[in-house]
């Protein structure tokens, strides 16, 4: 199910060892999943032009091969309401190490989930669903299942989450679009099965779900490090995409 462009994204990221956010988002949008409208701006003028075209508020994120966890480097600004704020933010982000541009995105609101995958040594690809956002690791409200997922696995993942009421519409909120969430999980499951010789872990965090959309607001693919796992290249020679 990997298109030529998807393969190319992975190939060109081989050296860094991980796929940066803009390319990762492109990767998942090629797989048929929804990402926010975005633009990678190298210049401040481009950023302003794109923000004007989609309308404020917008999100600005630093793009840098040196920064894996952007929020730890203060590399994300949400709710930018006007041009003046955007220019200030751009200026600040451009000083971060390894700066390679600023990603300008539409703001999406809804329940923040983390959807991820790990290539487990003992069990192979597994999928994770949990309460997402910056504090995902503090809440640790996650459910894991071995891929490939079947619909019953997805149902049980949603059922087993402590945050389940948030998905079902807590205190008058509308429930999240269950079909879109199912599709996202199934697509990721298919993807990791075809990438099982190539990926180490995938974070889609946050995935913002509301009553009509499930949007991958941030994405990162950690690739297998071939220099430290020669067994993979030997025993599965030719099976991987590299």
């Amino acid at each position: 199910m990997l298109t030529r462009e998807m393969r190319e994204i992975l190939l060109t990221s081989k050296e860094t060892g991980w796929v940066l956010e803009p390319q990762a988002k492109r990767f998942f949008s090629l797989a048929g999943l929804e990402v926010p409208r975005y633009f990678l701006a190298g210049q401040i003028e481009e950023a302003v032009r794109f923000a004007k075209s989609i309308g404020y508020p917008v999100v600005a994120k630093v793009v840098s091969p040196k920064v894996i966890h952007k929020s730890e480097k203060n590399g994300v600004e949400v709710g930018i309401g006007n041009e003046r704020q955007l220019m200030g933010t751009f200026d600040r982000l451009s000083k971060i190490e390894g700066f390679a541009g600023v990603l300008i995105e539409e703001m999406v609101s809804g329940v923040e989930l983390i959807i991820g995958a790990k290539n487990d040594f003992q069990f192979g690809p597994v999928i994770l669903l949990g309460l997402g956002g910056t504090w995902a690791e503090i809440y640790q409200d996650v459910v894991l299942r071995m891929a490939p997922l079947m619909q019953k696995d997805i149902d049980s993942m949603k059922r087993c989450l402590r945050a389940r009421p948030l998905l079902e519409g807590y205190r008058g909120a509308e429930p999240v679009d269950s079909e879109k969430l199912n599709k996202l999980l199934l697509t990721l499951s298919d993807l990791v099965m075809s990438l099982e010789h190539d990926f180490e872990s995938i974070d889609l965090n946050p995935v913002i779900c509301n009553s009509s959309r499930c949007v991958i607001a941030d994405a990162r693919i950690m690739l297998k490090n071939f220099t430290i796992s020669p067994i993979t290249t030997q025993s599965h020679r030719g099976e991987g995409i590299f």
């Binding site: 983390i114 640790q140 965090n205």
Partner: peptide, 10 residues
């Protein structure tokens, strides 16, 4: 490691 790898321990 990613959040997922950190939370999906052995």
């Amino acid at each position: 490691a990613s959040h997922t790898a950190a939370m999906a321990g052995d």
